[in-house]
Write a protein that binds this DNA or RNA. Structure first.
Length: 338
DNA sequence: AAAGCGGGGGC
DNA sequence: GCCCCAGCTTT
């Protein structure tokens, strides 16, 4: 079995991505770390805008540590997976306290940072400090699954274990940082999920899927799962000035740490009880159009209920210039009120 | 409209 | 070791 690093690095010299916003010489570990966290579940094209915006607001780890959680979440809002933003913020504090503001350089230390696993730790240390580590992100999984016709889906531990073995086998100790970038670039630009561009691929001749024309069968599809539909009522408490009431959600669970509307079971009795407890003078003004919001593992039917609260003394927020981090459907709902 | 992306935390 | 998280892009 031939390691793929040699032809891959040669290809990278000519076709690799070298001007992404977080790429610099020398590398900036803060930028590399931030980009790797953003890229965990989001594609490069989407990340670029958020990344530039984020470092403009928080130019250094120290600036990030000094910011409020709400300020960080507000910049993250729309990217999803809000635990990533909270972990980032927590880690900034940790780096200030334990490492005097310098990004740690030991693999174990980096792996211990909240939000960083084996692949992300490897990527950060490889790209930032030119240490020799293997990575296994979605791009690498796809490339290796095709190249070796790996059976099974990486949700299964045996498949994942096999892919890690292959990833480590192919990872070179020379030009490791460039290889890390190269194999991600190959997956992102040529060895794409559908319609891979095999004719331009530097490792096509040894690729088992290419040889047998079975690229579309790898990686093997994920076993299907039925998504349940859940229902919730979202209560839009609005005062006479048109401002709305928002509450910060608990750290754990869906939309953790974001600001959202009060929710309750979508039953008239429960809704009336909830709003009376909030404000005895409140009354239902309208039932707004239902929003269907889909997550990976369930659909959520949102019944928005507009409620008028005259003379309420609690904190209400004006609809314009809301800088709080809001869940996407809440943002949609608020925009409809304008 | 549905499928796929994707890595880490928690139980 | 399995389940959960959750917006966006692609098909």
């Amino acid at each position: 079995m031939n390691p793929i690093s040699k032809p891959l690095l040669k290809w990278f010299d000519q076709f690799g991505r070298k001007t992404l916003p977080w790429q610099s010489k020398p590398a900036n570990p803060y930028h590399v770390w931030l980009s790797e966290i953003m890229l965990q579940q989001t594609q490069v094209a989407t990340v670029i805008g958020y990344f530039n915006n984020f470092i403009q607001h928080f130019p250094t780890i120290e600036a990030l540590a000094d910011a409020s959680e709400d300020a960080v979440l507000a910049q993250w809002a729309g990217l999803g997976y809000y635990a990533r933003a909270r972990n980032l913020h927590t880690t900034a504090h940790l780096i200030m306290r334990q490492y005097q503001g310098n990004f740690p350089t030991e693999f174990k230390q980096v792996l211990d940072l909240p939000g960083v696993g084996e692949s992300t730790a490897g990527a950060i240390l490889s790209i930032s400090f030119h240490q020799n580590h293997a990575i296994l992100d979605g791009n690498v999984k796809r490339v290796l699954a095709r190249y070796h016709q790996v059976q099974g889906h990486y949700g299964q531990s045996a498949t994942l274990k096999q892919l890690w073995h292959l990833a480590k086998y192919h990872t070179p100790n020379q030009r490791n940082a460039e290889y890390t970038q190269a194999i991600m670039d190959l997956g992102a630009t040529l060895c794409t999920r559908s319609k891979p561009n095999c004719t331009r691929c530097p490792i096509q001749s040894q690729c088992l899927a290419q040889q047998t024309n079975t690229q579309d069968q790898y990686p093997n599809p994920k076993p299907k799962k039925n998504k349940p539909t859940r229902t919730t009522a979202m209560l839009i408490y609005q005062n006479t000035a048109g401002e709305i009431y928002l509450e910060k959600r608990p750290k754990k669970g869906i939309w953790g740490g974001l600001w959202s509307l009060v929710e309750c079971e979508n039953k008239e009795k429960t809704i009336l009880q909830t709003l009376k407890e909030f404000d005895p003078n409140a009354h239902i003004k309208a039932n707004l159009a239902v929003i269907k919001h889909s997550f990976t593992h369930y659909h959520l039917l949102i019944y928005p209920i507009l409620i008028h609260c005259p003379d309420n003394k609690q904190t209400f927020h004006p609809l314009e210039q809301l800088t709080l981090g809001l869940p996407a459907p809440v943002k949609t709902l608020i925009n409809r009120l304008k």
